[in-house]
Amino acid sequence: MRKIRWPQLVRRIHKWLALLIGLQVVFWTATGFYMVVVHIDTIHGDHLVRPVAAPSVALVGLTPPSAAASAVPGASEVRLISRLGQPAWRVQGEDGVAVFDARTGGRLGELSEAEARAAAKARFTGDAEIVSAVRLTRPVQEMGKRKPPYWQVEFAGWNRPTLYIAPQTGELLARRHQLWRVFDFAWMLHIMDYRDRSDVNNPLLRVATWTALAMALTGAWLLVWAFPRRKKRKSV
Rank of each mutant, 00 (worst) to 15 (best):
T125Y: 03
P73C: 14
W210C: 11
P64K: 04
G219E: 04
G85L: 06
P167A: 02
D184M: 04
A186S: 09
R11P: 00
H190N: 04
F227S: 03
L179G: 03
V60H: 09
L111W: 01
G105T: 06
K15M: 13
R176I: 09
A186H: 00
V236W: 09
R50A: 08
L189N: 03
A69M: 10
G144N: 05
R181V: 10
W16E: 09
V10E: 04
V38L: 14
Y164K: 02
M35I: 07
A128I: 06
K145Q: 10
A120W: 00
S70R: 13
A186Q: 00
A54H: 07
T137C: 03
S132G: 06
G219P: 01
G61R: 04
A128L: 09
R90E: 05
V97I: 15
N159D: 15
F124G: 00
P64R: 06
L204W: 11
R160S: 12
I130T: 06
V224N: 11
S132A: 14
A18T: 09
P51Q: 03
S70I: 08
M188N: 03
P73R: 14
R79L: 15
Q24L: 07
A58L: 12
V182K: 00
P161N: 09
P228G: 05
E129C: 04
D95I: 05
R206A: 13
D46S: 13
A214Q: 06
V224P: 06
Y34R: 03
S76P: 05
A208E: 00
S198C: 09
T169M: 02
A88K: 01
L223Q: 12
G74I: 13
F227W: 14
V182N: 02
G109E: 04
N201T: 08
L173I: 15
Q86E: 11
R176P: 00
I43R: 01
L179A: 13
V36I: 11
G45K: 01
D199W: 10
L111R: 00
D184Q: 01
R83Y: 08
P149V: 04
G93E: 02
D41Q: 15
S132I: 02
L20A: 13
I191M: 07
